[in-house]
């Protein structure tokens, strides 16, 4: 399947109604760590250039906080788009993080929910 179609099918979201207002990027608390803004990512999905998105870290940096979706005037669930992008990578069995390299000192204090949620978003 074409990657843009895959994003659409996994996320269930159609991004064509986005008019690039930029509210999602303005609302994003982790925009400072992203190569491309959420708005740019949505644009790239619109023009079906998913490969370009995969060169950036945006969908890995997204922390699934739903701030963008809560404010999107077109009610696009951008968080789901980010999840679809992560899933496309993870389903190829490519982990984003190395579970074995998390320092023991951290594992002693991290809440289980931090690890469960992290592994769900960053490991295959």
């Amino acid at each position: 399947m074409d990657l843009a179609e895959k994003v659409k099918s996994i996320s269930g979201e159609d991004v064509l109604s986005c008019y690039q207002c930029g509210l999602c990027s303005g609302s994003c608390p982790v925009r400072f760590a992203m190569d491309l803004s959420p708005t740019q990512v949505i644009r790239l999905v619109q023009i079906r250039n998913i490969e370009k998105i995969f060169e950036a870290n945006t969908f890995w940096i997204c922390s699934t906080c739903f701030a963008c979706y809560a404010r999107c005037p077109r009610e696009i669930n951008i968080t789901k788009i980010m999840e679809a992008l992560r899933q496309i990578r993870l389903r190829r069995d490519q982990d984003k993080i190395s579970v074995n390299e998390i320092p023991k000192e951290e594992l002693k204090i991290l809440p289980p929910i931090a690890l469960v949620s992290n592994f769900r978003k960053t490991t295959a």
Binding site: V99, L107, F119
Partner: peptide, 13 residues
């Protein structure tokens, strides 16, 4: 409480 996560963090998967 965290001893399992320390040695087997993958249980969180």
């Amino acid at each position: 409480a965290n001893v399992f996560l320390e040695y087997y963090p993958e249980i969180a998967k």
